[in-house]
Write a protein that binds this DNA or RNA. Structure first.
Length: 419
RNA sequence: GGGCAGUUUCCGGAGCGGUCAAACGGGGCUGACUGUAAAUCAGCUGGGAAACCUACGGGGGUUCGAAUCCCUCACUGCCCA
Protein backbone atom coordinates (compact mmCIF):
# COMPACT_ATOMS: atom_id res chain seq x y z
CA UNK A 1 0.00 0.00 0.00
CA UNK A 2 1.38 3.36 -0.96
CA UNK A 3 0.31 6.90 -0.54
CA UNK A 4 -1.22 8.52 -3.55
CA UNK A 5 1.49 10.45 -5.26
CA UNK A 6 -0.22 13.64 -6.10
CA UNK A 7 -3.43 13.80 -4.16
CA UNK A 8 -6.07 16.12 -5.54
CA UNK A 9 -6.22 19.26 -3.41
CA UNK A 10 -9.97 19.31 -3.87
CA UNK A 11 -10.25 15.82 -2.50
CA UNK A 12 -8.17 16.82 0.47
CA UNK A 13 -10.39 19.79 1.14
CA UNK A 14 -13.36 17.49 1.11
CA UNK A 15 -11.72 15.28 3.71
CA UNK A 16 -10.99 18.31 5.86
CA UNK A 17 -14.34 20.06 5.53
CA UNK A 18 -17.24 17.90 4.57
CA UNK A 19 -19.27 17.00 7.67
CA UNK A 20 -16.34 18.03 9.81
CA UNK A 21 -16.79 20.05 12.95
CA UNK A 22 -13.30 20.46 14.24
CA UNK A 23 -9.80 19.94 12.97
CA UNK A 24 -7.14 20.69 15.50
CA UNK A 25 -4.40 22.54 13.64
CA UNK A 26 -6.00 22.30 10.24
CA UNK A 27 -2.89 23.55 8.48
CA UNK A 28 -0.74 20.77 9.84
CA UNK A 29 -3.16 18.11 8.77
CA UNK A 30 -3.55 19.66 5.33
CA UNK A 31 0.18 19.72 4.94
CA UNK A 32 0.46 16.06 5.95
CA UNK A 33 -2.20 15.12 3.47
CA UNK A 34 -0.70 17.17 0.67
CA UNK A 35 2.96 16.53 1.14
CA UNK A 36 2.73 13.12 2.69
CA UNK A 37 4.27 11.77 5.82
CA UNK A 38 7.77 11.03 4.55
CA UNK A 39 6.27 8.57 2.13
CA UNK A 40 4.47 6.63 4.83
CA UNK A 41 0.71 6.31 4.94
CA UNK A 42 -0.81 8.16 7.88
CA UNK A 43 -2.12 5.98 10.66
CA UNK A 44 -5.68 7.12 11.17
CA UNK A 45 -7.08 5.86 14.43
CA UNK A 46 -10.66 5.09 15.31
CA UNK A 47 -11.65 3.79 18.72
CA UNK A 48 -14.35 1.16 18.83
CA UNK A 49 -16.55 0.54 21.83
CA UNK A 50 -17.28 -3.20 21.87
CA UNK A 51 -20.15 -2.81 24.29
CA UNK A 52 -22.21 -1.79 21.29
CA UNK A 53 -22.52 -3.89 18.22
CA UNK A 54 -25.81 -2.88 16.72
CA UNK A 55 -24.57 0.00 14.68
CA UNK A 56 -26.62 2.84 13.29
CA UNK A 57 -26.12 4.90 10.19
CA UNK A 58 -24.75 7.47 12.63
CA UNK A 59 -21.67 5.28 12.98
CA UNK A 60 -21.39 5.27 9.22
CA UNK A 61 -20.62 8.98 9.28
CA UNK A 62 -17.27 8.33 10.92
CA UNK A 63 -16.68 5.23 8.84
CA UNK A 64 -17.15 7.21 5.65
CA UNK A 65 -14.66 9.78 6.82
CA UNK A 66 -12.21 7.02 7.51
CA UNK A 67 -12.77 5.67 4.02
CA UNK A 68 -11.99 9.08 2.60
CA UNK A 69 -8.62 8.90 4.26
CA UNK A 70 -8.11 5.44 2.85
CA UNK A 71 -8.84 6.71 -0.62
CA UNK A 72 -5.93 9.07 -0.20
CA UNK A 73 -3.83 6.02 0.55
CA UNK A 74 -3.82 6.16 4.34
CA UNK A 75 -4.30 3.41 6.82
CA UNK A 76 -7.23 2.90 9.15
CA UNK A 77 -6.16 1.73 12.58
CA UNK A 78 -9.06 0.41 14.60
CA UNK A 79 -8.69 -0.09 18.33
CA UNK A 80 -11.11 -2.41 19.99
CA UNK A 81 -11.65 -0.85 23.39
CA UNK A 82 -11.88 -4.02 25.39
CA UNK A 83 -10.49 -2.28 28.47
CA UNK A 84 -12.38 0.96 28.21
CA UNK A 85 -15.55 -1.07 27.69
CA UNK A 86 -15.09 -2.23 31.25
CA UNK A 87 -15.18 1.35 32.45
CA UNK A 88 -18.08 2.47 30.34
CA UNK A 89 -17.90 5.50 28.10
CA UNK A 90 -18.93 8.45 30.22
CA UNK A 91 -20.09 10.42 27.18
CA UNK A 92 -23.57 11.65 27.90
CA UNK A 93 -24.32 8.76 30.16
CA UNK A 94 -25.64 8.59 33.65
CA UNK A 95 -25.49 5.06 34.93
CA UNK A 96 -22.67 2.70 35.42
CA UNK A 97 -22.68 -0.15 32.99
CA UNK A 98 -22.21 -3.76 33.89
CA UNK A 99 -18.89 -5.15 32.79
CA UNK A 100 -19.02 -7.47 29.83
CA UNK A 101 -17.51 -10.91 29.70
CA UNK A 102 -14.49 -11.47 27.50
CA UNK A 103 -16.51 -13.68 25.15
CA UNK A 104 -19.21 -11.06 24.85
CA UNK A 105 -16.67 -8.42 23.97
CA UNK A 106 -15.15 -10.65 21.35
CA UNK A 107 -18.49 -11.45 19.79
CA UNK A 108 -19.51 -7.82 19.78
CA UNK A 109 -16.28 -6.77 18.16
CA UNK A 110 -16.69 -9.33 15.40
CA UNK A 111 -20.21 -8.13 14.66
CA UNK A 112 -19.05 -4.56 14.77
CA UNK A 113 -16.28 -5.18 12.28
CA UNK A 114 -18.60 -6.99 9.88
CA UNK A 115 -20.67 -3.85 9.67
CA UNK A 116 -17.62 -1.64 9.61
CA UNK A 117 -16.21 -3.39 6.56
CA UNK A 118 -19.34 -2.65 4.60
CA UNK A 119 -17.95 0.83 4.36
CA UNK A 120 -14.27 0.76 5.15
CA UNK A 121 -11.71 -1.13 3.10
CA UNK A 122 -10.56 -4.17 5.01
CA UNK A 123 -7.24 -4.33 3.18
CA UNK A 124 -6.23 -0.91 4.40
CA UNK A 125 -7.28 -1.54 7.98
CA UNK A 126 -5.25 -2.67 10.96
CA UNK A 127 -7.21 -4.02 13.92
CA UNK A 128 -5.73 -3.84 17.40
CA UNK A 129 -6.97 -4.62 20.89
CA UNK A 130 -6.36 -2.47 23.93
CA UNK A 131 -5.56 -5.57 25.95
CA UNK A 132 -2.39 -5.94 23.85
CA UNK A 133 -0.87 -3.16 25.91
CA UNK A 134 -3.11 -2.70 28.92
CA UNK A 135 -2.86 -6.31 30.08
CA UNK A 136 0.82 -5.53 30.60
CA UNK A 137 0.14 -2.38 32.55
CA UNK A 138 1.35 -2.22 36.14
CA UNK A 139 0.10 -0.06 38.93
CA UNK A 140 3.16 2.12 38.38
CA UNK A 141 2.09 2.68 34.77
CA UNK A 142 -1.40 3.58 35.88
CA UNK A 143 -0.14 6.04 38.45
CA UNK A 144 2.12 7.64 35.93
CA UNK A 145 -0.76 8.08 33.50
CA UNK A 146 -2.91 9.58 36.24
CA UNK A 147 -0.24 12.09 37.11
CA UNK A 148 -0.50 13.79 33.74
CA UNK A 149 -3.92 15.29 34.29
CA UNK A 150 -5.48 17.27 37.10
CA UNK A 151 -8.96 17.00 38.48
CA UNK A 152 -9.79 20.45 37.19
CA UNK A 153 -8.67 19.47 33.71
CA UNK A 154 -10.85 16.40 33.71
CA UNK A 155 -13.83 18.31 35.00
CA UNK A 156 -13.43 20.72 32.13
CA UNK A 157 -14.99 18.09 29.96
CA UNK A 158 -18.57 19.28 29.65
CA UNK A 159 -20.42 16.08 30.45
CA UNK A 160 -18.34 15.60 33.59
CA UNK A 161 -18.91 19.21 34.53
CA UNK A 162 -22.62 18.87 34.06
CA UNK A 163 -22.83 15.75 36.14
CA UNK A 164 -20.61 17.19 38.81
CA UNK A 165 -22.69 20.31 39.18
CA UNK A 166 -26.00 18.58 39.21
CA UNK A 167 -24.85 16.12 41.84
CA UNK A 168 -24.83 13.04 39.61
CA UNK A 169 -22.22 10.47 40.53
CA UNK A 170 -18.94 10.28 38.66
CA UNK A 171 -16.80 7.25 39.29
CA UNK A 172 -13.06 7.50 39.38
CA UNK A 173 -12.91 4.71 36.85
CA UNK A 174 -14.83 6.90 34.46
CA UNK A 175 -12.25 9.61 34.84
CA UNK A 176 -9.73 7.09 33.59
CA UNK A 177 -11.56 6.62 30.36
CA UNK A 178 -10.08 9.54 28.42
CA UNK A 179 -6.61 8.66 29.66
CA UNK A 180 -6.81 5.07 28.52
CA UNK A 181 -8.22 6.05 25.19
CA UNK A 182 -5.55 8.70 24.91
CA UNK A 183 -2.85 6.20 25.69
CA UNK A 184 -4.07 4.04 22.84
CA UNK A 185 -2.80 6.74 20.53
CA UNK A 186 0.61 6.38 22.11
CA UNK A 187 0.57 2.61 21.80
CA UNK A 188 -0.46 2.81 18.17
CA UNK A 189 1.65 5.79 17.20
CA UNK A 190 -1.44 7.36 15.69
CA UNK A 191 -0.94 10.25 13.29
CA UNK A 192 -4.56 11.21 13.13
CA UNK A 193 -7.54 10.29 15.24
CA UNK A 194 -11.10 10.74 14.15
CA UNK A 195 -14.38 10.48 16.00
CA UNK A 196 -17.71 12.10 16.60
CA UNK A 197 -17.88 15.47 18.30
CA UNK A 198 -18.73 13.73 21.57
CA UNK A 199 -15.20 12.32 21.49
CA UNK A 200 -13.44 15.66 21.22
CA UNK A 201 -12.11 15.67 24.75
CA UNK A 202 -10.83 12.11 24.54
CA UNK A 203 -9.08 12.79 21.26
CA UNK A 204 -7.41 15.85 22.69
CA UNK A 205 -6.10 13.85 25.61
CA UNK A 206 -4.40 11.51 23.17
CA UNK A 207 -2.86 14.47 21.47
CA UNK A 208 -1.51 15.76 24.78
CA UNK A 209 -0.19 12.42 25.89
CA UNK A 210 1.86 11.57 22.81
CA UNK A 211 4.52 14.27 23.21
CA UNK A 212 5.02 13.15 26.81
CA UNK A 213 5.97 9.77 25.40
CA UNK A 214 8.22 11.31 22.79
CA UNK A 215 5.86 11.16 19.85
CA UNK A 216 4.52 13.88 17.62
CA UNK A 217 0.96 14.78 18.63
CA UNK A 218 -1.79 13.27 16.56
CA UNK A 219 -4.01 15.45 14.44
CA UNK A 220 -7.60 15.26 15.41
CA UNK A 221 -10.69 15.56 13.33
CA UNK A 222 -14.24 15.32 14.58
CA UNK A 223 -17.34 14.81 12.49
CA UNK A 224 -20.89 15.96 13.04
CA UNK A 225 -23.15 13.65 14.91
CA UNK A 226 -26.40 13.28 13.09
CA UNK A 227 -29.69 13.68 14.87
CA UNK A 228 -31.99 10.75 15.25
CA UNK A 229 -35.44 10.24 13.80
CA UNK A 230 -36.94 12.65 16.29
CA UNK A 231 -34.83 15.41 14.77
CA UNK A 232 -33.65 16.59 18.16
CA UNK A 233 -31.36 14.22 19.97
CA UNK A 234 -28.33 12.50 18.62
CA UNK A 235 -28.99 9.20 16.96
CA UNK A 236 -28.52 6.33 19.32
CA UNK A 237 -29.74 2.91 20.08
CA UNK A 238 -30.63 3.73 23.65
CA UNK A 239 -32.78 6.63 22.49
CA UNK A 240 -34.56 4.36 20.07
CA UNK A 241 -34.42 6.96 17.33
CA UNK A 242 -32.05 5.22 15.01
CA UNK A 243 -31.74 3.65 11.61
CA UNK A 244 -29.71 0.45 11.79
CA UNK A 245 -26.71 0.27 9.56
CA UNK A 246 -28.00 -3.05 8.33
CA UNK A 247 -31.59 -1.89 7.84
CA UNK A 248 -33.08 -3.32 4.66
CA UNK A 249 -33.56 -0.82 1.81
CA UNK A 250 -37.29 -0.25 2.13
CA UNK A 251 -37.12 0.22 5.84
CA UNK A 252 -34.17 2.54 5.58
CA UNK A 253 -35.85 4.60 2.88
CA UNK A 254 -39.06 4.93 4.86
CA UNK A 255 -37.30 5.98 8.02
CA UNK A 256 -35.26 8.55 6.15
CA UNK A 257 -38.46 10.01 4.72
CA UNK A 258 -39.86 10.43 8.19
CA UNK A 259 -37.03 12.72 9.25
CA UNK A 260 -37.90 16.31 10.00
CA UNK A 261 -36.95 18.63 7.13
CA UNK A 262 -34.34 20.51 9.10
CA UNK A 263 -32.25 17.38 9.46
CA UNK A 264 -31.84 16.89 5.72
CA UNK A 265 -28.83 19.07 5.24
CA UNK A 266 -26.63 17.29 7.73
CA UNK A 267 -27.67 13.89 6.40
CA UNK A 268 -26.73 14.99 2.92
CA UNK A 269 -23.41 16.29 4.12
CA UNK A 270 -22.42 13.34 6.20
CA UNK A 271 -23.90 10.38 4.36
CA UNK A 272 -23.83 11.29 0.69
CA UNK A 273 -21.39 12.68 -1.83
CA UNK A 274 -23.83 15.15 -3.33
CA UNK A 275 -21.63 18.22 -3.97
CA UNK A 276 -21.90 21.23 -1.71
CA UNK A 277 -22.93 23.51 -4.56
CA UNK A 278 -25.92 21.34 -5.29
CA UNK A 279 -26.87 21.32 -1.62
CA UNK A 280 -26.65 25.11 -1.56
CA UNK A 281 -28.90 25.36 -4.55
CA UNK A 282 -31.47 23.03 -3.06
CA UNK A 283 -31.51 25.00 0.18
CA UNK A 284 -31.96 28.22 -1.71
CA UNK A 285 -34.82 26.93 -3.81
CA UNK A 286 -36.58 25.49 -0.82
CA UNK A 287 -36.29 28.80 0.97
CA UNK A 288 -37.73 30.55 -2.09
CA UNK A 289 -40.53 28.05 -2.19
CA UNK A 290 -39.74 26.90 -5.71
CA UNK A 291 -38.70 23.44 -4.64
CA UNK A 292 -40.82 21.07 -2.60
CA UNK A 293 -38.88 19.77 0.42
CA UNK A 294 -40.44 16.38 -0.15
CA UNK A 295 -38.67 16.09 -3.49
CA UNK A 296 -35.40 16.92 -1.81
CA UNK A 297 -36.03 14.41 0.89
CA UNK A 298 -36.68 11.70 -1.65
CA UNK A 299 -33.38 12.51 -3.26
CA UNK A 300 -31.73 12.31 0.12
CA UNK A 301 -33.31 8.99 0.97
CA UNK A 302 -32.39 7.60 -2.44
CA UNK A 303 -28.79 8.74 -2.19
CA UNK A 304 -28.33 7.30 1.27
CA UNK A 305 -30.01 3.97 0.59
CA UNK A 306 -27.87 3.78 -2.51
CA UNK A 307 -24.76 4.25 -0.36
CA UNK A 308 -25.62 1.18 1.65
CA UNK A 309 -27.48 -1.02 -0.80
CA UNK A 310 -26.67 0.23 -4.28
CA UNK A 311 -28.69 2.28 -6.77
CA UNK A 312 -31.07 -0.47 -7.90
CA UNK A 313 -32.20 -1.24 -4.39
CA UNK A 314 -32.60 2.47 -3.72
CA UNK A 315 -34.75 2.88 -6.80
CA UNK A 316 -36.90 -0.08 -5.83
CA UNK A 317 -37.26 1.25 -2.30
CA UNK A 318 -38.44 4.58 -3.61
CA UNK A 319 -41.03 2.97 -5.84
CA UNK A 320 -42.28 0.80 -3.02
CA UNK A 321 -42.46 3.82 -0.77
CA UNK A 322 -44.51 5.82 -3.24
CA UNK A 323 -46.90 2.94 -3.77
CA UNK A 324 -47.36 2.27 -0.13
CA UNK A 325 -47.47 5.71 1.37
CA UNK A 326 -48.19 8.25 -1.33
CA UNK A 327 -50.75 6.07 -3.08
CA UNK A 328 -51.74 4.22 0.05
CA UNK A 329 -51.56 0.81 -1.46
CA UNK A 330 -50.67 -2.27 0.49
CA UNK A 331 -46.98 -3.13 0.49
CA UNK A 332 -45.92 -6.12 -1.56
CA UNK A 333 -43.90 -7.76 1.13
CA UNK A 334 -45.35 -8.52 4.50
CA UNK A 335 -45.18 -11.27 7.06
CA UNK A 336 -47.34 -14.30 6.31
CA UNK A 337 -49.50 -16.10 8.78
CA UNK A 338 -50.98 -19.49 8.05
CA UNK A 339 -54.53 -20.05 9.21
CA UNK A 340 -56.73 -23.12 8.97
CA UNK A 341 -59.77 -21.95 10.82
CA UNK A 342 -61.26 -18.65 11.97
CA UNK A 343 -59.33 -17.09 14.81
CA UNK A 344 -60.23 -14.28 17.13
CA UNK A 345 -58.57 -11.04 16.08
CA UNK A 346 -57.02 -10.32 19.48
CA UNK A 347 -55.54 -13.79 19.71
CA UNK A 348 -54.20 -13.54 16.20
CA UNK A 349 -52.52 -10.18 16.72
CA UNK A 350 -50.74 -11.43 19.79
CA UNK A 351 -49.72 -14.77 18.33
CA UNK A 352 -48.43 -13.14 15.17
CA UNK A 353 -46.39 -10.84 17.45
CA UNK A 354 -47.89 -7.77 15.87
CA UNK A 355 -48.76 -6.58 19.33
CA UNK A 356 -47.18 -7.34 22.72
CA UNK A 357 -50.30 -8.11 24.76
CA UNK A 358 -53.99 -8.75 24.47
CA UNK A 359 -54.81 -5.51 26.21
CA UNK A 360 -52.71 -3.66 23.70
CA UNK A 361 -54.55 -5.37 20.86
CA UNK A 362 -57.88 -4.37 22.32
CA UNK A 363 -56.75 -0.81 22.77
CA UNK A 364 -55.69 -0.59 19.15
CA UNK A 365 -59.01 -1.97 17.96
CA UNK A 366 -60.90 0.45 20.13
CA UNK A 367 -58.89 3.32 18.69
CA UNK A 368 -59.60 2.32 15.14
CA UNK A 369 -56.08 1.24 14.43
CA UNK A 370 -56.82 -2.19 13.03
CA UNK A 371 -58.28 -2.84 9.61
CA UNK A 372 -58.92 -5.85 7.45
CA UNK A 373 -58.76 -6.40 3.70
CA UNK A 374 -60.79 -9.57 3.11
CA UNK A 375 -59.36 -10.15 -0.35
CA UNK A 376 -56.01 -8.39 -0.18
CA UNK A 377 -55.08 -5.33 -2.18
CA UNK A 378 -58.09 -5.38 -4.47
CA UNK A 379 -60.68 -5.46 -1.76
CA UNK A 380 -62.46 -2.89 0.32
CA UNK A 381 -61.04 -1.89 3.65
CA UNK A 382 -63.00 -3.00 6.62
CA UNK A 383 -62.36 -1.30 9.94
CA UNK A 384 -62.38 -3.75 12.78
CA UNK A 385 -64.54 -2.40 15.55
CA UNK A 386 -64.88 -5.20 18.00
CA UNK A 387 -62.35 -7.42 19.74
CA UNK A 388 -64.74 -10.30 19.05
CA UNK A 389 -64.03 -10.19 15.33
CA UNK A 390 -63.13 -13.54 13.87
CA UNK A 391 -60.51 -13.56 11.15
CA UNK A 392 -61.46 -16.03 8.43
CA UNK A 393 -58.77 -18.30 7.02
CA UNK A 394 -59.04 -16.79 3.56
CA UNK A 395 -55.92 -16.89 1.47
CA UNK A 396 -54.56 -13.44 0.68
CA UNK A 397 -56.58 -11.51 3.24
CA UNK A 398 -54.55 -8.75 4.88
CA UNK A 399 -54.56 -7.25 8.34
CA UNK A 400 -53.22 -3.77 8.93
CA UNK A 401 -52.29 -2.52 12.38
CA UNK A 402 -51.41 1.12 12.73
CA UNK A 403 -49.46 2.52 9.83
CA UNK A 404 -46.66 0.06 9.53
CA UNK A 405 -47.69 -3.36 10.68
CA UNK A 406 -49.18 -5.80 8.19
CA UNK A 407 -50.00 -9.48 8.09
CA UNK A 408 -51.08 -11.60 5.16
CA UNK A 409 -53.21 -14.65 5.85
CA UNK A 410 -52.34 -17.80 4.02
CA UNK A 411 -53.94 -21.19 4.20
CA UNK A 412 -51.28 -23.85 4.66
CA UNK A 413 -52.86 -26.20 2.11
CA UNK A 414 -52.87 -23.71 -0.73
CA UNK A 415 -49.40 -22.44 -0.04
CA UNK A 416 -48.04 -25.97 -0.10
CA UNK A 417 -49.80 -26.49 -3.43
CA UNK A 418 -48.16 -23.35 -4.76
CA UNK A 419 -44.71 -24.39 -3.77
C1' G B 1 -15.39 8.42 61.11
C1' G B 2 -20.04 11.56 62.06
C1' G B 3 -24.64 14.02 60.42
C1' C B 4 -28.52 14.94 56.78
C1' A B 5 -31.22 13.84 52.28
C1' G B 6 -32.63 10.39 48.71
C1' U B 7 -33.79 5.32 45.75
C1' U B 8 -41.36 5.44 42.53
C1' U B 9 -44.10 2.79 36.52
C1' C B 10 -39.74 3.79 29.65
C1' C B 11 -37.46 8.81 31.59
C1' G B 12 -38.16 13.10 34.82
C1' G B 13 -41.10 13.75 38.98
C1' A B 14 -45.67 13.97 42.57
C1' G B 15 -47.57 10.82 46.30
C1' C B 16 -46.45 10.70 53.02
C1' G B 17 -51.69 4.70 56.03
C1' G B 18 -57.11 3.06 52.56
C1' U B 19 -60.59 6.41 47.27
C1' C B 20 -52.90 4.15 44.04
C1' A B 21 -51.56 0.48 38.62
C1' A B 22 -50.01 5.67 41.25
C1' A B 23 -51.06 13.19 39.74
C1' C B 24 -48.24 16.07 36.12
C1' G B 25 -44.55 16.58 32.17
C1' G B 26 -41.55 14.06 28.45
C1' G B 27 -41.37 9.84 25.41
C1' G B 28 -44.14 6.04 22.88
C1' C B 29 -48.72 4.34 20.47
C1' U B 30 -53.61 5.24 17.84
C1' G B 31 -56.82 8.51 15.17
C1' A B 32 -57.62 13.48 12.36
C1' C B 33 -54.73 16.74 9.19
C1' U B 34 -50.35 15.84 5.87
C1' G B 35 -45.21 15.36 2.28
C1' U B 36 -45.00 8.23 6.87
C1' A B 37 -42.04 16.16 7.61
C1' A B 38 -42.90 19.86 11.18
C1' A B 39 -46.77 22.16 13.87
C1' U B 40 -51.67 21.30 15.81
C1' C B 41 -56.00 18.68 17.90
C1' A B 42 -58.23 14.20 20.35
C1' G B 43 -57.57 9.56 22.81
C1' C B 44 -54.54 5.58 24.80
C1' U B 45 -50.09 4.11 27.50
C1' G B 46 -48.47 -3.05 33.47
C1' G B 47 -50.76 -8.11 32.76
C1' G B 48 -55.53 -10.75 32.86
C1' A B 49 -62.36 -11.90 29.85
C1' A B 50 -62.89 -11.45 34.96
C1' A B 51 -61.94 -12.70 39.89
C1' C B 52 -57.49 -10.98 40.51
C1' C B 53 -51.95 -11.00 39.86
C1' U B 54 -47.34 -8.36 39.52
C1' A B 55 -45.03 -3.37 40.38
C1' C B 56 -43.05 1.91 44.08
C1' G B 57 -34.16 -0.29 45.72
C1' G B 58 -33.50 -5.76 48.68
C1' G B 59 -35.09 -8.33 53.17
C1' G B 60 -37.97 -8.31 57.68
C1' G B 61 -41.82 -6.13 60.78
C1' U B 62 -46.30 -2.96 62.60
C1' U B 63 -51.46 -2.72 60.86
C1' C B 64 -57.92 -5.17 59.10
C1' G B 65 -55.00 -2.54 55.24
C1' A B 66 -48.35 0.13 53.39
C1' A B 67 -45.36 3.29 47.72
C1' U B 68 -46.71 5.70 52.27
C1' C B 69 -44.96 3.91 59.47
C1' C B 70 -40.68 0.98 61.99
C1' C B 71 -36.02 -2.07 61.63
C1' U B 72 -32.21 -3.67 58.62
C1' C B 73 -29.12 -4.24 54.18
C1' A B 74 -27.43 -2.12 49.56
C1' C B 75 -26.58 2.05 46.49
C1' U B 76 -26.27 7.56 45.56
C1' G B 77 -25.84 12.83 46.75
C1' C B 78 -24.71 16.81 50.24
C1' C B 79 -22.38 18.70 54.72
C1' C B 80 -18.75 18.23 58.88
C1' A B 81 -14.01 15.75 60.08
Amino acid sequence: MTVKHSPEPAEIERVLKRGVVLVEKEEELRRLLLEGNRGEPLRVKLGVDPSHYELTIGHAVVFRKLRQFQRLGHKAVVVIGDWTARLGDPSGRENARKPLSAEQVKANAATYLDQFYRIVDREQTEVRWQSEWFDQFTLADVMRLLSYKTVAQMLARDDFAKRFHSGIEIYLSELMYPLLQGYDSVALRADVEIGGTDQTFNLLVGRELQPIFGQPPQQILTVQLIVGLDGQLKMGKSLNNYIALTAPPNDMYGKLMSLPDHAMRSYFETLTDVPDEELEEMSRKMAEGTLNPMVVKRRMAREIVSEFHGPEAAQAAEEAFIRQFSQRQLPEEMPLYPLTEPVNIVTLLVEARLVPSRNEARRLIQQGGVSFFPHGATSEVQKIETPDFMVPPSEGAVLKVGKLRYLRITSPSSSSVQS
